[in-house]
Design a binder for these strands. Structure first.
Lengths: 216, 216
DNA sequence: ACTCGATTGAAACAAACGTTTAGAACAGAA
DNA sequence: TTCTGTTCTAAACGTTTGTTTCAATCGAGT
């Protein structure tokens, strides 16, 4: 009681390691089965820990979920878009934006993290607000700024819809890949590589907003 | 045993009415809470029936779910696209296709039915195959045929991606509406009416595939 | 060695889950 | 009426859920 806790550096490490394992396991299970479908027991089993671990480290299932989603969006690779060259022409930066977006959707650094993030976005829950603030909105505002440069004569609403058209194309392959495979067969869809899709979306979008064919 | 069942006309009606109420309730609850999140008790309570009703009429929860999804896609309005005038030019039929698609996503005849269908598409389960066969694939093949008319010089893969770009734009507003509201604020997104979005997607797509601005 | 706070383990908790059972209520046929 | 089959209800089934309890274990400070 009387003794102040002082700092516990190495203990904190092992603490983080335990929480980290739990978060990693939660990310996978939540991504695969959804919030309701994932059981605390399955998560703890995956983490090699006891059922009580969730309650001890996070309090309850919901808190664990929110923390897992927060951790997931940190694992996503936002950086390549951050160090974008601001001196390049807007049309080039738009192309880079699209290519980064398509790549992120097709081959995310952490598939289960991306899966979990997209799941939360499709059905926004308690973690959605944080996710939007720290992960989604920055990307959306970057695109909006680009479109303001490229189409200053258009209204805000027109640019908003243009942004949705671009994002909609990129998101399609992540949100509807499996259905597409059911429709056209898996080989047909798998034949579409990241580069092919990126090239297509860039060309489709450039034509759509009047940038014309991309110069070689 | 010895007596054959004969026909039971009016009894069959009341039977259908009971199953129908159950299916309607299941559609709403499953659409709102997902398969795992929806409880058999909640569905039966909504239908004003006993818990055992699900097991009596459908056997188990999963069968009820599949039947509810099948019923949901029947409630969706596929017809307006069916009686499409085949004599009109392909570019006009494409525009009609897009407008119908956008309208169906924005203001479906039965919101809960559409919600349930989209949910199953996002996370394909046991009902996905039927849904694709009877509901999704016909639409997709119609679009593919249109693009074959409009862009006969392109490869199958290019046309496939073009189709995905078009569908991706239409689906965006249904799959990511709530996130968009979180990003930009509800009023900004609600300001986009069905007609505005349809006009935009038509113009965006026409430009993208080289049809030029639509003639007045 | 001893103490004490942090962490883990096995077990159990009440509640909710999908499912089942046995019988009541009903309608038509004999 | 009596019988027969169908439909519905109340109650309970066994299992699984998220959560809690409490003692065992560990690690560092005195």
């Amino acid at each position: 009681m009387a003794t102040e806790p002082i700092d516990v550096p190495e203990l904190a490490e092992s603490n983080e390691s335990a929480k980290e394992r739990l978060l990693a396991a939660a990310e996978e299970i939540f991504a695969d089965y959804g919030y309701e479908g994932a059981s605390v027991r399955a998560i703890c089993h995956r983490a090699g820990m006891n059922v009580a671990a969730v309650n001890y480290h996070f309090g309850d299932k919901e808190t664990l979920y929110v923390e897992a989603v927060k951790r997931a969006h940190n694992c996503s690779d936002t950086k390549p878009v951050d160090d974008d060259d601001p001196t390049a022409p807007a049309s080039v930066r738009l192309e880079r934006f699209i290519r980064h977006m398509v790549a992120m959707m097709h081959e995310p650094a952490s598939p289960s993290a991306m899966k979990l993030v997209v799941r939360e976005m499709a059905d926004p829950g308690k973690a959605a607000a944080t996710l939007v603030d720290e992960f989604i909105r920055p990307i959306a505002f970057r695109l909006r700024a680009l479109l303001q440069e490229l189409q200053p004569h258009q209204t805000d609403e027109e640019r908003l819809m243009t942004g949705f058209s671009i994002i909609g194309q990129c998101l399609y392959y992540r949100q509807n890949r499996r259905v597409s495979e059911l429709i056209f067969g898996k080989p047909q869809v798998e034949a579409l590589t990241v580069d092919m899709v990126a090239d297509h979306v860039v060309r489709f979008t450039r034509n759509a907003i009047g940038l014309g064919e991309r110069p070689a």
